[in-house]
C-alpha cells in the first residue's frame, strides 16, 4: 500500500526506517553514491527534514518496495543547492512545484516486481500531484535515467542542456502534471497493478 509521510511521523517510524535502510542499500551499496550514511545502516541527508514528503510503497507486512522523496522548491532542494548550473534560466521555485529525489526501487525486488513497483510509484506521484495541486515536478537525472523518465509518457521539458558534473552527464527536467497525465501514463503502458505483498528474498 501507499504511505504518504512526513519525516517525523511517529505512527510510521517503521516504514520510514525501512525506507532509509533501502535507500542505503540502493544508493550507497549498489550505486556507490557519495552520500552520508547514519550508523552504517540508513541513508539520510540534509534534505531529510520536516519539509520533505515521502511516498512509500510497502507490502502488507511493512516491507519496503519502493519510495520517492519530494522536496518543496520554495526551500533548499537538490537542484537549487547542488546543481543550479543545470538550469539555463531560473531554477524552479514555486509553491506548486516539488522536486522528485531518491526514486528508489527496493534492491530485493525481482525484475518483474521492479516493473510493477516502478509503475505504481510513478502512478502514485501523479495522483499525489493532482490531489495536492502540484502542477509540476522537477528532477535531476543522469542521462540513462533521463531516457527512462521520458519513457513514462508524462510531459517533460528540459531545464537546460545536459552537462558533465563530477564525471557524469546530468540533466534537469520539469515534469508537467496536467489532468490528462494519468491518461498519458497508461498510453505509455504505465498502469497500476497489484503489488507484490512482500519483497523477494535477499540475494546471496
Amino acid at each position: 500500500m501507499l504511505h504518504v509521510l512526513k519525516s517525523g511521523d511517529p505512527l510510521e517510524v517503521s516504514v520510514l526506517r525501512a525506507m532509509f535502510k533501502a535507500r542505503k542499500e540502493v544508493f550507497v551499496d549498489l550505486l556507490r553514491w557519495d552520500v552520508p550514511v547514519l550508523g552504517d545502516t540508513f541513508e539520510v541527508d540534509q534534505f531529510d527534514n520536516e519539509h520533505a514528503t515521502y511516498l512509500v510503497l510497502a507490502g502488507r507486512d511493512g516491507r519496503h518496495l519502493g519510495s520517492a522523496r519530494l522536496l518543496p522548491t520554495m526551500r533548499a532542494n537538490i537542484l537549487s543547492s547542488l546543481y543550479p548550473m543545470l538550469c539555463e534560466g531560473e531554477v524552479p521555485r514555486s509553491v506548486d512545484t516539488y522536486e522528485i529525489t531518491r526514486f528508489c526501487l527496493d534492491r530485493d525486488l525481482r525484475a518483474s516486481e521492479r516493473r510493477l513497483v516502478r509503475d505504481a510509484l510513478v502512478t502514485s506521484l501523479v495522483e499525489h500531484a493532482l490531489e495536492n495541486r502540484i502542477g509540476a515536478y522537477c528532477a535531476v537525472a543522469h542521462m540513462s535515467w533521463f531516457q527512462q523518465i521520458l519513457a513514462f509518457g508524462w510531459k517533460c521539458r528540459p531545464l537546460g542542456l545536459p552537462q558533465m558534473v563530477g564525471g557524469t552527464m546530468l540533466a534537469a527536467a520539469r515534469i508537467i502534471i496536467e489532468p490528462d497525465t494519468p491518461h498519458r501514463l497508461s498510453a505509455a503502458g504505465i498502469v497500476p497493478a497489484p503489488l507484490p505483498e512482500t519483497a523477494g528474498r535477499k540475494a546471496a
Binding site: 550505486l31 553514491w33 537525472a141
Partner: peptide, 20 residues
C-alpha cells in the same frame, strides 16, 4: 538483459546510473 540480474551485481565497479 531482462534485469533479473544487474551488471553491477556481477562486476564490482563504480557504477552510477542515477544521480538525484
Amino acid at each position: 538483459f531482462d534485469g533479473t540480474l544487474s551488471f553491477s551485481e556481477i562486476v564490482a565497479r563504480r557504477y552510477t546510473p542515477f544521480r538525484e
